[in-house]
Simulated assay, not measured.
Amino acid sequence: MTFLMHWSFKTGYHEIAAKKFLATGAPFPECTLWKRWHAPGSVERWILLEADKADACYEHAAEWAECLDWEVTPVLSDEQAGPLIAKAYS
């Protein structure tokens, strides 16, 4: 399943999180990490990944919870959503 993880820095934790990221690379075991996006001049960031279970997202978010606030959303592609929309409205 594909997940979009949105996160932002908690107040006062930008430097701590940045140093942790640079030291570790913020790995995602048990996931295929598709892409990370960083909004320059903002505290907003996004991660798009593929995982068999939401547990992997939860584990990663928990590891960074001291520094970051998280929103995790399962997402579908057009190819996945199209048949479901067609079924709902047929």
Rank of each mutant, 00 (worst) to 15 (best):
T2R: 15
T2I: 05
F3Q: 03
F3W: 05
M5S: 13
M5K: 06
W7N: 12
W7L: 11
K10A: 09
G12H: 09
E15V: 09
E15P: 00
A17Q: 14
K19H: 07
K20H: 15
L22N: 13
A23M: 06
A23S: 14
T24Q: 12
G25W: 08
C31A: 06
L33I: 07
W34H: 15
W34V: 14
K35E: 14
R36C: 02
H38K: 08
A39K: 11
A39E: 13
P40K: 12
P40T: 10
V43A: 11
V43W: 10
E44G: 07
L49E: 01
L49R: 02
E50Q: 07
A51C: 03
A51R: 00
A51F: 01
K53A: 13
D55Q: 06
Y58L: 14
Y58W: 10
A62G: 08
W64L: 14
W64H: 12
E66L: 11
E66H: 11
C67R: 10
C67T: 14
D69P: 06
E71C: 10
V72T: 11
V72W: 05
V72F: 05
P74V: 01
S77I: 02
D78S: 11
D78C: 09
Q80K: 08
Q80G: 06
A86L: 05
S90G: 05
S90Y: 03
